[in-house]
Simulated assay, not measured.
Amino acid sequence: MMLIRTTAAYRLLVLGLLGLLLVSCVSVLAFGPASVPLGNVWGILAQQVGLNVDADWSKGQEHIVWLIRAPRVLLGALVGAGLALVGTALQAVTRNPLADPHLLGVSSGAALGAVLVMLYLGDFIGVFSLPLAAFIGAAGSMVLVLAVASHGGRLESDRLLLAGVAVSFVLMALVNLLLYTGDHHTTSSVVFWMLGGLGAARWEVVWLPALCVVIGLGALLVLARGLNALMSGEQTAVSLGFSGRRLRLHVFICTSLLTGVLVSLSGAIGFVGLMVPHMARRLVGAEHRRLLPVSALLGALFLVWVDVAARTLIAPEDLPIGIATAAIGGLFFIMLLRRRR
């Protein structure tokens, strides 16, 4: 695959990915257990934005497209973009190409916080209860991983990955214990949520992940020069005026917030943050001011189409999207390990 180097080619790539994402988001609204003609989909969307069109579709089709599928597709794009951003940033600060929020225990910590709210605490601050608990869990798990991985004041990438896997197992054991001891009627829905899915998408909640993804992308772009320096080594970053410890802290806070909000709405969807950054690097290289936007767009595209497969393969039932990403990501992980060897 040819690496894009010129500014003009990069802008053309970003515009092409944006256009492809827009077309994909509209096209996939036609897929599902109840198919809707693509022409009707365009008409429904045009009517919702205020255009005067002849309505030759049923109220049921309008309800399916606008109230069920449209927020689901938008949430899928946001979750894919956010997880890809998190994976890109974590791979940079850990200098490990196998790092992602799932393998470093961040997703498991977020899941633990969310399960505590769903089973025991309830909506103590309304709609923000689940995202806040997931963020606290994600941040706590990251602190725990860093404490385990630190050795003599240094943070080695291989130790960090191993610590992440170990902490992830411990946290998931706690999650399973909570599920086992909780109310069995509630735990069945929580178990389905943990497998990953976008069925909870509603227009009234989509604004929160959208806001977090936009803020997260902006914050990581501000830190992009530091990420580039850190990829070259700790000493290089220090010589260029960056504090590795402070930069990691900022990145970990940002990625924990993103992961917490996304996991609270979609469950634990693994391996998106592992795969997508590698695809983006094949296109634009490792310069993070270019890499981050392309990773976000590719992640959004990837999860939008994986969701189509999840809701059509065993229709009318929904296949948990985490199963599909885990199958694809596991094969990708094996391929990466073989290439590194």
Results as ranks from 00 to 15, higher is better:
Met2Gly: 14
Arg5Glu: 10
Arg5Ala: 14
Thr6Val: 13
Ala8Tyr: 15
Ala9Pro: 12
Val14Trp: 10
Val14Pro: 05
Leu15Arg: 08
Gly19Glu: 04
Gly19Pro: 06
Val23Gln: 07
Val23Asp: 06
Val23Ile: 15
Ser24Thr: 15
Ser24His: 08
Ser27Asn: 14
Pro33Lys: 12
Ser35Glu: 15
Val36Leu: 10
Leu38Asp: 03
Asn40Ile: 02
Val41Pro: 03
Trp42Phe: 11
Gly43Asn: 15
Asn52Pro: 02
Asp56Asn: 15
Trp57Tyr: 13
Trp57Val: 06
Lys59Ser: 15
Ile64Asn: 04
Trp66Asn: 09
Pro71Arg: 11
Leu74Cys: 13
Leu85Ala: 08
Gly87Gln: 03
Ala89Gln: 05
Gln91Asn: 09
Ala92Glu: 11
Thr94Tyr: 13
Thr94His: 13
Val106Met: 11
Ser107Thr: 13
Ser108Pro: 04
Phe124His: 08
Gly137Leu: 09
Ala138Thr: 14
Leu146His: 15
Val148Pro: 04
Gly153Gln: 08
Leu162Ser: 06
Gly164Lys: 07
Ser168Val: 07
Phe169Ser: 07
Leu171Met: 07
Met172Tyr: 03
Val175Ile: 05
Leu178His: 00
Leu179Tyr: 07
Tyr180Leu: 08
Thr181His: 11
Thr181Gly: 11
Ser188Lys: 12
Ser189Gln: 10
Phe192Asp: 01
Gly196Ile: 00
Gly197Pro: 00
Ala201Val: 04
Glu204Arg: 01
Val205Glu: 08
Val214Leu: 15
Val214Ala: 14
Val214Arg: 10
Leu217Gly: 08
Gly218Pro: 05
Ala219Leu: 14
Ala219Ile: 12
Leu223Thr: 13
Arg225His: 10
Leu227Gln: 11
Leu230Lys: 06
Gly233Asp: 04
Val238Glu: 13
Val238His: 13
Ser243Met: 07
Ser243Asn: 12
Gly244Ile: 08
Leu249Ser: 10
Ile253Lys: 04
Ser256Ala: 06
Leu258Ile: 07
Val261Arg: 07
Val261Met: 05
Ser264Val: 02
Leu265Lys: 07
Ser266Met: 04
Gly273Asp: 02
Ala280Pro: 03
Val284Ala: 10
Gly285Gln: 07
Arg289Leu: 09
Leu292Glu: 12
Leu297Gly: 09
Asp307Tyr: 03
Ala315Trp: 07
Gly322Val: 00
Ile323Cys: 06
Ala327Gln: 11
Ile334Gly: 03
Arg340Met: 14
Arg340Trp: 09
